Amino acid sequence: MSNHRPNYLAGFGSLVWLFLVGLPLYAMLVATLQSRTGYAENGPLSLPDSPTFDNYLRILQDPGSGFGRYFLNTALVTVCVVGLVLLLVPPLCYAIVRSRSRTTHTIFRLFLLGLAIPSQAVIVPMFYVISKAGLYDNLVGVVLPTAAFAMPVCALILTGVMRDITPDLYEAMTVDGASPSRVFFRLVLPLSRSGLSTIVVYSALQAWNGFLFPLVLTQSEETKVITLGLYDFQTEHGVDIPGLLTAVVLSLLPILLVYLCARRALVQGLMGVGGK
Rank of each mutant, 00 (worst) to 15 (best):
S203E: 13
A204L: 09
A204G: 03
A204R: 06
A204T: 10
A204M: 07
L205I: 12
L205D: 08
L205F: 15
L205Q: 10
Q206T: 10
Q206H: 06
Q206K: 12
A207H: 04
A207D: 02
A207W: 02
W208H: 00
W208E: 03
W208D: 07
W208R: 01
W208M: 00
W208G: 09
W208Y: 04
W208F: 00
N209G: 00
G210L: 08
G210V: 06
G210K: 04
G210T: 12
G210A: 14
F211I: 00
F211K: 07
F211D: 06
F211A: 11
L212M: 14
L212F: 09
L212R: 03
L212Q: 08
L212H: 04
F213S: 04
F213D: 11
P214E: 06
P214D: 04
P214R: 04
P214M: 04
P214N: 09
L215K: 15
L215D: 12
V216Y: 09
L217K: 08
L217Y: 09
T218F: 07
T218D: 10
T218S: 10
T218Q: 09
Q219R: 15
Q219C: 01
S220F: 05
S220L: 08
S220G: 11
S220Y: 05
E221C: 00
E221W: 05
E222F: 01
T223N: 13
K224G: 06
K224F: 09
V225K: 05
V225P: 03
V225G: 02
I226M: 13
I226E: 05
I226N: 04
I226Q: 06
T227C: 06
T227H: 02
L228D: 05
L228A: 01
L228V: 05
L228C: 03
G229A: 07
G229M: 04
G229K: 00
L230P: 05
L230T: 05
L230I: 15
L230N: 04
L230H: 04
L230C: 09
L230M: 15
Y231D: 14
Y231P: 01
D232I: 00
D232F: 01
D232S: 11
